[in-house]
């Protein structure tokens, strides 16, 4: 393959990845998104619609979609499934009361045809809060070991301290890239 051809190909292949961030309300989705983007995270209010951010990371162009998680808004989630490469499921690890609700919502998403084949990253967020469940606990409570339909991983993290956020995104990108961008 000639150099010109290679150069041309490199220029053409903008490696774009679409990530959809979902989870119950108050889980910390918008906070994670803003933390990533280096924005102020002190004045975030509940999301009533959706946010989009485009981030450049490791030569990838990440289009991250963050949709509001309040119960009344969850029926809108389906409008954002199309073309999703990676699903980031954010859990409030301190919210023991709603962990069953959280499990149900996640498992019904995994049945969605339009999310089939997407990579699943579970963020066990708010690890900085005392009394929060460990990611091991959450893995059990969400019954993650039974997921056979998606590549998945769970990571403990904190949107406030930033702990493990990057690691999670890197794993997600690697998993997606191994599926999608292998041809050249």
């Amino acid at each position: 393959m000639g150099l010109l051809t290679i150069l041309k190909k490199m220029k053409q292949k903008e490696k774009e990845v679409r990530l959809l961030m979902l989870g119950l309300d108050n889980a910390g989705k918008t906070t994670i998104l803003k933390k990533f983007n280096g924005e102020d995270i002190d004045t975030i209010s509940p999301t009533l619609g959706f946010n989009i951010k485009t981030l450049e990371h490791r030569g990838f162009k990440l289009n991250v979609w963050d949709v509001g998680g309040q119960r009344s808004l969850r029926s809108y989630w389906r409008n954002y499934f199309e073309s999703t490469d990676g699903l980031i499921w954010v859990v409030d690890s301190a919210d023991r009361m709603r962990i069953q609700d959280c499990k149900q919502e996640l498992h019904s998403l995994l049945l969605e045809e339009r999310l089939a084949g997407s990579t699943l990253l579970v963020f066990a967020n708010k690890q900085d809060l005392p009394g929060s469940l460990s990611s091991e606990d959450i893995k059990k409570m969400l019954d993650l070991d039974n997921i056979k339909s998606h590549h998945w991983r769970i990571l403990p993290c904190s949107a406030v301290t930033g702990e493990h956020l990057l690691e999670g995104i890197d794993w997600t990108i690697d998993d997606i890239a191994s599926r999608i961008f292998t041809m050249d």
């Binding site: 999301t47 009533l48 619609g49 959706f50 946010n51 989009i52 808004l73 809108y76 409008n79 954002y80």
Partner: peptide, 8 residues
């Protein structure tokens, strides 16, 4: 910055 569902 936030988008409304109706935009979609």
């Amino acid at each position: 910055e936030e988008n409304k569902f109706i935009y979609t």
